[in-house]
Design a protein around this nucleic acid. Sequence first.
DNA 1: AAAATATTTGACTACTTGGTCAGGTTATAA
DNA 2: TTATAACCTGACCAAGTAGTCAAATATTTT
Lengths: 219, 219
Amino acid sequence: MSNLKVAEKVRSSTRSKEKIREQNERIILIAAEKVFAKHGLKGATTKQIADMAKLPKSNIHYYFHTKLNLYRCVLESILVDWMKAADTFNTFDEPREAFRYYVGAKMDLSRVRPFGSKVWANEIISGAPEMEAVLSSRLKKWVDTCVGSINTWVELKKIINVGDAHTLLYMIWATTQHYADFEYQVKILNNGKRLTDAEFEEKKQQVIDLVLRSVGLNP
Amino acid sequence: MSNLKVAEKVRSSTRSKEKIREQNERIILIAAEKVFAKHGLKGATTKQIADMAKLPKSNIHYYFHTKLNLYRCVLESILVDWMKAADTFNTFDEPREAFRYYVGAKMDLSRVRPFGSKVWANEIISGAPEMEAVLSSRLKKWVDTCVGSINTWVELKKIINVGDAHTLLYMIWATTQHYADFEYQVKILNNGKRLTDAEFEEKKQQVIDLVLRSVGLNP
DNA sequence: AAAATATTTGACTACTTGGTCAGGTTATAA
DNA sequence: TTATAACCTGACCAAGTAGTCAAATATTTT
């Protein structure tokens, strides 16, 4: 038995523990997220994704058929994570805790899944051609709920009147996602060194404090 | 004399007032900014840019030689505007006025030149391959000055201690540029209607107030 | 007016791209 | 073991792509 065959045997026996399809789809999705983040939908090539996934190009098409379909799957998978973080916002009655946890969760997501955030940013920047439906239904609904909470807190004088609650929400999104989408710029302005975990935790706390003060809460 | 010839005569006599090259380069730069904003460097095609500029493709290459060179020219032209807005920051001694004017200027830029902001965002998201040099020299220098001003205000107790001044700067950039880069999302969440000039002015004021409060200043 | 220079553009090319497909191998069910 | 289904992949192709070029036209200079 050749070395190659041995390698294959080991590889396949490892893989059969979980469905082959499942594992390969995951590998491809992760690779695709990186490539789409860097080059966008049009700029990314299936060859690049294949190379990143260390699979032949045909294999990508076998599992996802078209580049557009793969792209949609990547977006969908990001949305799942985002919605989980979003849900934390509405589980708190007190604004201080709600903002603290939501901003914290968004910052954590920017840290652990920066490529996903970049793909999303690219999609919106290019006019949200694939995500318009999701934005105007699922996201809109969630935003309306949030705006409701914030307005209630304003009425109860728990926070300062910020005018349109959307403005506050956008500030939170923009600021937290900045650490993912613009991480290269952040790195360059940090003397070329990526933020360490400790530094990032520090920034996270500072962002939380900025947000809290912006709505009149003492951190 | 045919109508076509008459049209050409009028066109050329109009154009000869200013250098033909100057005018065509401007037309192409504007078209390229839109196309690069939508599709990024790799995704944009010279054909799309040509169509947008209503010129034959060869003409694009005649004036800018390569797509990459045209892209660099677009980035450079954006930077000029950004630096102008940036300079306003250091012309004020009082933090209240500095933040008010700088945030206002950044918001105005997002309103009048959203495509430029998107091209820039795309560039940074994809790793700033063309702008790294500019970021680590010109921008870094400006940021260092800003950070110095902010730290001085903290020492003089004019604003609250925000920890790392970069965090505050990033919040301002992210929040103001959000209205350019994510304008499609903003539109969708505004019930599909683009913000009117009046609405935008309102948002601008709210953003300014949020920023001022975040550093402990009463707007 | 003639010469020199600058602009315009259709036709072309070498190369890349997303996607197909046939013929193979591997895993699983009977 | 055998049959069936799932997976794998090199070779291929039609449709685009950035960039070239030469010939035509327009503009400026002399």
